[in-house]
């Protein structure tokens, strides 16, 4: 059953990592907490990402599902994992739209498997929308306020 869940590397349209992608399916958060060997997990909007914190060391892939683009819980899930030190792949899957890419990237997503493939040019432009940013997030970008006050 677990093998049916999740996206395959072929479905990943954008990936900002150099390591080999995980080549098997993901399990649910519940299953991940129950079984000690799972290395890939899928978070649904209603799942508490913090349940995964004890297992971050063994996880290589976390998929965060966006069943509808308007449900923004996955942005918090992503940031929470990065704040806890998760360094594996964090993949946004589902109803992922062009105009959400830059925000998702800032929340710590480093791969994207949208249900519908996105226009490459539009997407690359979207990733580069913000030359500077106002607030701290899961990326390590220096914010505008830092730059204003650098010595």
């Amino acid at each position: 059953m677990a093998d049916n869940l999740g996206t395959s590397p072929d479905e990943v349209q954008f990936r900002f990592r150099d390591d080999e992608p995980v080549d098997h399916g993901t399990v649910t958060v519940d299953a991940c907490c129950d079984q000690t060997n799972a290395t890939a997990v899928r978070i649904e909007p209603g799942d508490d990402a913090r349940l995964l914190l004890p297992y971050l060391d063994r996880l290589a892939l976390v998929e965060v599902n966006f069943p509808g683009f308007g449900d923004g819980r996955g942005y918090s899930s992503a940031r929470i994992l990065r704040e806890a030190g998760y360094t594996g792949e964090l993949r946004a899957v589902g109803d992922v739209l062009i105009d959400q890419l830059s925000h998702m990237r800032r929340c710590g997503f480093d791969s994207f498997a949208p249900d519908k493939r996105l226009d490459e040019d539009d997407a690359l432009r979207a990733f580069a929308t913000w030359e500077n940013v106002y607030q701290r997030a899961a990326d390590t970008r220096r914010i505008i306020a830092d730059k204003r006050h650098e010595a």
């Binding site: 308007g70 923004g72 942005y75 959400q100 800032r106 940013v133 106002y134 607030q135 997030a137």
Partner: peptide
Amino acid sequence: RQWSSFHPEFTYLP
């Protein structure tokens, strides 16, 4: 205002 402008986590709130 600056903090909330284009906030990456809070653009698709309930």
